[in-house]
Design a protein around this nucleic acid. Structure first.
Lengths: 192, 192
DNA sequence: TCAAAAGTGTTGGCTGTACACCCATGA
DNA sequence: TCATGGGTGTACAGCCAACACTTTTGA
């Protein structure tokens, strides 16, 4: 029985409050694996994607028989700040709305939700300054839940994961928001 | 490149408060996969293990190159009550202490800990009556943490996952404990 | 009657939630 | 000056942790 092994690398980011996925020629990033998976993946990334500190997390393995061949697909995900990627060649970000009927994307989003409630992950998305209403909107969309402004802020302060930068943002409308940053990670905390 | 695919099925149970693993001839249950994984696994179980309602959960995929062949191993786990398995042939349960330096077992135990805090999982382990001190001892060993008897009971009652059977156990020593059962599962709850 | 193990109730502090008013900005 | 969005404080309820004494049984 012939076996084909490939990995799929799903790199997520948030742009304008929307979840986006890195694609190559508008398709998921697929890599044929003829060697150990970690080795093949990190090689591919080194040679094709201009990004630092990618830490892939294994998400799920799918098998499918097709024309007497067994296709194995191991899905990996990571979450990054899109500004830290220099897009080149045919790579681009695509909103996941258009990809939601893909089984590989569905499995990835399940994993993504579990990761994004960790302070270490959210700091990868927002390594520098941010405003709290933006973080709140992201969680509200991601977890499909509403939060109270005051309680949301109090929670993050009490968990000791953010620090006030004593600066304010320049909003298009309404009162400008305060800028914060996530503290450096000493231990993983579950935020929501 | 030749690829060998196998799955490992790690079926855990608790015997006398100790975590045990189902083994075949004292070795992990390994299945060569020449077809879709779920199909191969359920076939193997049907033909070899006398147990009902096994629901395997995918845990991790490992790859290893050896002599120019790529070995892929997909690990699956489940947790059962040992009384629901009729052991035959060369199957037996083995305490995990003796297996802890095996990488496949280590990965499985990581997954196991995440599963065992769910009420649906603990009910699979204790489908019928049980005493609270036994459950408490299991969690204390599993999570390496001590709980207060009173608070432990109060928590499970408040979460509405157990019901008092108005019966008492017959202990070897000390006061007999009350018997409880886990209520039927309507929604998954995280207990600890 | 003693040792071992399990049952029970109260309290104080902390956390989460609900809620109303004020403030800074751009139009 | 108005609309928009963001900042803040208080009060109440529910949860968690700490803790001591009593009860039942077997030896």
């Amino acid at each position: 029985m012939e076996v084909n092994v490939k990995s799929i690398i799903n790199i997520f980011t948030i742009i304008d409050g929307k979840i986006n996925l890195l694609v190559n020629n508008n398709k998921l990033i697929e890599i044929e694996c003829l060697d150990e998976l970690d080795y093949v993946n990190s090689n591919y990334i080194k040679n094709n994607i201009d990004i630092k500190n990618l830490i892939l997390k294994q998400c799920f393995t799918l098998s499918k028989k097709q024309e007497d061949k067994l296709n194995l697909t191991i899905i990996y995900i990571d979450i990054v700040n899109y500004k830290n990627i220099k897009l080149n060649n045919n790579f681009s970000f695509k909103q996941i709305e258009e990809l939601k009927d893909n089984i590989f994307v569905q499995k990835s989003i399940e994993c993504l939700k579990k990761e994004l409630v960790l302070n270490s992950t959210i700091k990868k998305l927002y390594p520098d300054e941010f405003i709290l209403p933006e973080i709140q909107r992201m969680y509200e969309e991601l977890l499909n839940k509403k939060y109270d402004r005051r309680n949301f802020r109090k929670k993050l302060i009490k968990l000791d994961v953010i620090e006030d930068l004593d600066k304010i943002s320049s909003n298009k409308t309404g009162r400008p928001a305060k800028l914060y940053r996530f503290k450096d990670i000493k231990e993983d905390k579950i935020l929501f």
